[in-house]
């Protein structure tokens, strides 16, 4: 059965896959960051806060509104952009160069990265491989939008 995106179920599915693939994520190293994911559809957004610790996603929760001071950074974008990214991952097994997080967020034109502190922002790049490979796990699940 397809898991809807965005939802805590979706992130929890990736969390389980991440735990099951410990060797892969241990090789990539520690990931210690809390960040927000915001998905906008028809001018309404659904917001999630993901907390990664050591090698795993420790917790995901849906929130009314992300408090930017409480997270390292927020990746926000229109549902269509997220969908495009996830469908690309589903097709290729991983995001291709046009659909990875860095490309989509680089100039803030497809996805936008906001932050309160530059050091929080830098964590996106410190842990980029782990975060990207986390989203790449979408290739292993059925996703509905």
């Amino acid at each position: 059965m397809a898991i809807r995106f965005p939802s805590t179920d979706y992130f929890n599915s990736l969390k389980k896959l991440m735990e099951a693939d410990q060797a892969r994520f241990r090789r990539l190293g520690f990931i210690d960051t809390t960040f927000g994911v915001s998905v906008t559809h028809n001018e309404t957004s659904r917001d999630f806060v993901l907390t990664f610790e050591v090698f795993e996603l420790k917790e995901v929760r849906e929130v009314e509104k992300i408090d930017i001071a409480q997270v390292d950074f927020v990746i926000a974008g229109d549902a269509a952009v997220w969908r495009d990214m996830l469908e690309n991952i589903r097709r290729n097994g991983e995001a291709d160069a046009q659909h990875d997080l860095n490309t989509l967020a680089h100039f803030g034109e497809a996805l936008k990265v906001s932050y309160a502190e530059p050091e929080g922002h830098d964590k996106l790049y410190r842990f980029m491989e782990s975060i990207q490979e986390f989203f790449d796990l979408t290739s292993q699940i059925e996703v509905g939008f």
Binding site: H106, F107, P118, L124, E129
Partner: peptide, 27 residues
């Protein structure tokens, strides 16, 4: 920048790792 416009998977992989190292340095 190079990762975002990567002409090849090789460049993207290199830049992915390089940005992690550089991000630690600026932090």
């Amino acid at each position: 920048q190079v990762a975002a416009v990567a002409p090849s998977r090789v460049d993207r992989a290199i830049m992915g790792y390089a940005m992690q190292d550089a991000a630690r340095q600026v932090s």
